[in-house]
């Protein structure tokens, strides 16, 4: 398979990464090279094989529903690009 320029732009938007027309062309070449490598998988008959999502066959651990963390909002917001009154600021989304 190979990706079209349009598909490259579509997945770039899905991933929220702006890609210029020039970049899209270079990226298309690289991605298609990588997909060619990945293609080797397609020839393998894996019917009946259970997909392996994880290295260890364990189930998710649960913990008691108790407060375990202290309030560190100030420390965490100190590294944010823009905050005001304890809130993260982003461009207006609702007019």
């Amino acid at each position: 398979m190979s990706l079209t320029l349009e598909q490259v732009q579509r997945i770039a938007h899905l991933a929220r990464i702006e890609v210029s027309a020039d970049e899209a062309q270079v990226t298309q070449g690289h991605l298609n090279g990588i997909f060619q490598l990945i293609e080797a998988m397609q020839a393998v008959d894996t019917r009946g094989v259970e997909p392996m999502a994880h290295a260890q066959d364990v189930s998710q651990r649960l913990r008691p529903d108790e407060v375990s963390e202290t309030d560190r909002r100030a420390a965490f917001q100190a590294v944010a690009p823009e905050t005001e009154a304890g809130l993260y600021l982003v461009p207006k989304v609702i007019e």
Partner: peptide, 29 residues
């Protein structure tokens, strides 16, 4: 960026089984 784009593609609708699930089955093998 390349890896994010590959990831976004193989997880996207219509390609998940052919790529992501197939890779996980090969992982088991």
């Amino acid at each position: 960026k390349r890896r994010i784009l590959i990831g976004a593609y193989v997880l996207s609708h219509g390609y998940y089984d052919a790529y992501y699930l197939q890779a996980q089955r090969i992982r088991r093998l």
